[in-house]
Measured scan of single mutants.
Amino acid sequence: VTVDIKGMEYHFDNPEEAKKFAERMAKELGGELKVENGTLKVE
């Protein structure tokens, strides 16, 4: 699973970990979490 945090890509084997990480980063950065082509994106 790929997580894109404002252009920086992180790769996770575990989808649950990827989702938790993306949600935490969205909250910390005040960004919006989206799913695009199987990639979790925070913008």
Score class of each variant (00 low, 15 high):
Val1Asp: 02
Val1Glu: 02
Val1Gln: 06
Thr2Asp: 03
Thr2Asn: 05
Thr2Ile: 14
Val3Ser: 01
Val3Asp: 01
Val3Met: 02
Val3Pro: 01
Val3Ala: 02
Asp4Phe: 15
Asp4Arg: 15
Asp4Asn: 14
Asp4Thr: 15
Asp4Gln: 14
Ile5Arg: 01
Ile5Phe: 07
Ile5Asn: 01
Ile5Tyr: 08
Lys6Phe: 15
Lys6Cys: 15
Gly7Ile: 02
Gly7Asn: 03
Glu9Tyr: 14
Glu9Asp: 04
Glu9Ala: 12
Glu9Val: 15
Tyr10Arg: 02
Tyr10Asp: 00
His11Pro: 01
His11Ser: 06
Phe12His: 01
Phe12Pro: 00
Phe12Val: 00
Phe12Ser: 00
Phe12Met: 01
Asp13Phe: 07
Asn14Pro: 00
Asn14Val: 04
Asn14Trp: 03
Asn14His: 06
Asn14Gln: 04
Pro15Asp: 08
Pro15Leu: 14
Glu16Leu: 09
Glu16Thr: 09
Glu16Arg: 06
Glu16Val: 10
Ala18Phe: 03
Ala18Glu: 00
Ala18Met: 02
Ala18Arg: 01
Lys19Thr: 10
Lys19Arg: 14
Lys20Ile: 12
Lys20Tyr: 08
Lys20Gly: 06
Phe21Glu: 00
Phe21Asp: 00
Ala22Val: 06
Ala22Met: 07
Ala22Phe: 06
Ala22Glu: 02
Ala22Gln: 03
Glu23Leu: 11
Arg24Cys: 15
Arg24Gly: 06
Met25Gly: 01
Met25Asn: 02
Ala26Pro: 00
Ala26Ile: 09
Ala26Tyr: 04
Ala26Cys: 12
Ala26Arg: 06
Ala26Val: 09
Ala26Lys: 04
Ala26Thr: 06
Lys27Cys: 14
Lys27Leu: 13
Lys27Asp: 08
Lys27Gln: 12
Lys27His: 11
Glu28Phe: 11
Glu28Ala: 10
Glu28Pro: 02
Glu28Lys: 11
Glu28Met: 12
Glu28Leu: 13
Leu29His: 06
Leu29Gln: 05
Leu29Lys: 03
Leu29Ile: 08
Gly30Val: 05
Gly30Cys: 13
Gly30Trp: 05
Gly31Ser: 07
Glu32Ile: 15
Glu32Asp: 09
Glu32Pro: 04
Leu33Asp: 03
Lys34Tyr: 11
Lys34Gly: 05
Val35Pro: 04
Glu36Ser: 10
Glu36Leu: 12
Glu36Gln: 11
Glu36Pro: 03
Asn37Thr: 06
Asn37Val: 05
Asn37Ser: 07
Gly38Asp: 06
Gly38Cys: 11
Thr39Leu: 12
Thr39Ala: 09
Leu40Gly: 04
Leu40Pro: 03
Leu40Cys: 08
Leu40Arg: 02
Leu40Ala: 04
Leu40Thr: 04
Leu40Ser: 03
Lys41Met: 09
Lys41Gly: 05
Lys41Glu: 04
Lys41Pro: 03
Val42Gln: 03
Val42Gly: 03
Val42Leu: 10
Glu43Asp: 11
Glu43Ser: 12
Glu43Cys: 15
Glu43Thr: 14
Glu43Phe: 15
Glu43Lys: 11
